[in-house]
Design a protein around this nucleic acid. Structure first.
Length: 158
DNA sequence: GCCAACGTTGGC
DNA sequence: GCCAACGTTGGC
């Protein structure tokens, strides 16, 4: 049973266009430093899960592409790099605290903006629309996933 | 830049 | 274990 996710990226750091320039349009989803988001990657994500690629902290936040989970969870190396913004001095290499998965972009889409998402009655309950939501990785219900891929006119690969 | 919401830390 | 203080996220 596959799952669906919304994953936030800051375009200033790793936009969908940046990812499309990478080999196989695949990016190691580095920098998650929240336990709830980490646990989703570690415990619930499977290769092949559907991903809504979301741009946050930018002029026009919204869903900008469709992606898939392309690897299982593995150690996020940036936690051990003192020069990295994501360095975590408290993490021990024998029991790494932070992990990541690879995410592969399948389709860049138009920007389905946050205001548009909010206006759609069928998307009520989408976690990213909830007040105070800050989680960078959130589960998406199958009914919401199907609605969004249909709106964007991309094949539902999951 | 502001601020609401939420997570984390640390004193007790 | 409680909770105040502080830090971060992220829309606006």
């Amino acid at each position: 049973m596959k799952n669906y996710w919304l994953m936030k990226a800051e375009p200033a750091e790793a936009s969908i266009d940046d990812v499309l320039t990478m080999p196989k349009a695949t990016v190691p989803w580095t920098g998650v430093r929240n336990y709830q988001a980490r646990n989703f990657m570690r415990d619930a994500m499977q290769v092949g899960d559907g991903v809504l690629f979301y741009h946050s902290s930018c002029a026009e936040p919204g869903i900008v592409g469709i992606a898939r989970v392309a690897s299982g969870a593995y150690t996020d190396p940036t936690q051990f790099d003192p020069t990295s913004h994501y360095f975590d001095a408290a993490s021990n290499p024998e029991t790494p605290r932070w992990i990541l998965v690879d995410v592969q972009v399948l389709h860049k889409t138009r920007n389905l903006t946050l205001p548009e998402l909010r206006l759609d009655p069928e998307l009520q309950g989408l976690t990213v629309l909830k007040k105070g939501n800050r989680l960078s990785i959130t589960p998406v219900e199958a009914v919401h996933w199907r609605h969004i891929v249909a709106m964007l006119g991309v094949p539902d690969f999951v």
